[in-house]
Design a protein around this nucleic acid. Sequence first.
DNA 1: TTTAGCACTCAAACAACAAGAGTGCTAACA
DNA 2: TGTTAGCACTCTTGTTGTTTGAGTGCTAAA
Lengths: 340, 340
Amino acid sequence: MLTERQLFLLQVIIDEFIQTAQPIGSRAISKKDEVTFSPATIRNEMADLEDLGYIEKTHSSSGRVPSEKGYRFYVDHLLSPSHLSQAELHLISNTFENNMVEFEQVVQKSAKVLSDLTNYTSIILGPKVYETTLKQIEIIQLSSYMAVAILVTNTGHVEHRSFSIPEEIKPSDLEKLVNILNQQLRNVPIIQLHERLQKEITMLMQKYVNDFDGAYQYLKAALFDEQPVQLYVGGITNILLQPEFKDVNKIHSLYSVMEQENAIANMLRSYSNGIHVSIGQENVMDEMQDCSLITATYSLGEEQLGTIALLGPTRMEYSRVISLLHVLSKRMSHTFDSWF
Amino acid sequence: MLTERQLFLLQVIIDEFIQTAQPIGSRAISKKDEVTFSPATIRNEMADLEDLGYIEKTHSSSGRVPSEKGYRFYVDHLLSPSHLSQAELHLISNTFENNMVEFEQVVQKSAKVLSDLTNYTSIILGPKVYETTLKQIEIIQLSSYMAVAILVTNTGHVEHRSFSIPEEIKPSDLEKLVNILNQQLRNVPIIQLHERLQKEITMLMQKYVNDFDGAYQYLKAALFDEQPVQLYVGGITNILLQPEFKDVNKIHSLYSVMEQENAIANMLRSYSNGIHVSIGQENVMDEMQDCSLITATYSLGEEQLGTIALLGPTRMEYSRVISLLHVLSKRMSHTFDSWF
DNA sequence: TTTAGCACTCAAACAACAAGAGTGCTAACA
DNA sequence: TGTTAGCACTCTTGTTGTTTGAGTGCTAAA
């Protein structure tokens, strides 16, 4: 168990290191106003904290630096909730007052405001469409052999896909098909579309639509193939401002993994409700083991829609970032709720 | 005027430097099989080439490095068209044989194949929608106070925008409005939409639709506000592999400017038909003055649609990149032509 | 005109050294 | 018994000097 004084010193060391990125020495600590005891005492305590694994030396006669275990303890036990400044709250409010009416817009602006306020990199996983329901399907013919299929969900999400129409299929067939699809599938959850289509509607359609099989084959690919994940990244260059990323190789490996949107998306999806902090080696992705990742979720009603995250060095302003994510995820959820 | 031998030496120096990124000395050149004269002779010639400004020394006793004037001369007069390898052509063919049916898909895959083949960064400006014509407008009501407007062009491009409906407007009004819009505006070039709407149709609409002014105000914002530019970037991390970008500050300034999509898009738009090479200081953007940018255009019929570009260090494989852009821009144009 | 020879220059790598920040330990102190 | 002053020791950082090697320019001979 740590003594009061050790807790205090650990907090001072981590707070200081987060600000300066420099190893902290006993003399520097003793100079602080809040500190009443001498460098020698501090050295003794620091030796103990080091034995316990909370801080480390970069070399045998250097000052101390928080270890990952130290950050973990700090996040779990020492964090005082930081209150955001008026200016920060104002900036967030401004972003959301801008009368936004689209998911994409909200998510994109949130990513921007997060990265602007923190100087870290924000990653937001766009709202998943699975739980939404179908509002309408449209097929619009562009030429005799091309058409675009459009699918609208109850949340105003629009998917579209162009496809080529085989010659055998007449426009009238296509029209009938769309009518049937809309009649039968309206308000069906997107995730059930494919199944419902195969089980219940195939028979019906074959009866009314000539060459249903041909049409269906094309339409299926156009409408129900899996859609690309939507990942919004803000302030990717902020990483370059951090002194821990002076090395081009580090930057390269981190940026490379950021390009793999699917992997990032899956990783983000794996976090449940609430705020999660992954420090250094705790991260699943190897390339992020010099970083900390803080995640939160946003939702529509009870339904968790997506994840917002901030990526920075392990020397992160945990307190501020957590408060910010808290405010922003609430704000996003609130905005979405207000629409429906 | 340069002598034959000077031309030859300039070519050798630039070719060699493009491969190695190291200053080239007289001895290294003399060792090449094609070179029959001695290091001393080469030194004399190099001194002349330096006086003329085509090559430079990095310090007083170093080997020579091409100057920007040297690259410019190389590109204008010395470039031998490189023939692409079977493997390269194959990779491009594979990309395009994948039965693509959408602009976005073609552009995105092209960006990827370009960056993969070159290890530079590809930037593609998405097809402009101005010259396309309106195929159809749809308005789909999501709830009593929200709707999504969808606009489809003859090229299968889909724009959509959610908007909130003021209470005064009845669904029936909305429906009438859409009908009139479709009747009057079908096949009108997108760029003329706004003007046509104001000049010719306002009167008609006011007659049939209650509270037209209210509805129009909302719809206008939803449909006709300027759309965000579409910029596709491939292989942004490739820049980090180049030895000239070991410095984090350089990377930061370049990446920062790449984030300003509008500025990049405008810059790319300013290039006319054909292939253009901007070397170092020739670039309009300050942040790119250590880079070379090579641009080409793609089109639909006679209509220039967009720009594809490659960004790399001034020490770029000009010959190969130009050949590649040539092939790819043709291939893209061809694909689009085949659709319409 | 070309080339061999040679003196000269500069960057890069390395060692030696001083300064400074910080530590651990011991002994004295409250 | 916990705290602190004092001191020897360690390691990084910055400076300076040296060596090595690649490359140049110039001169004189072929």
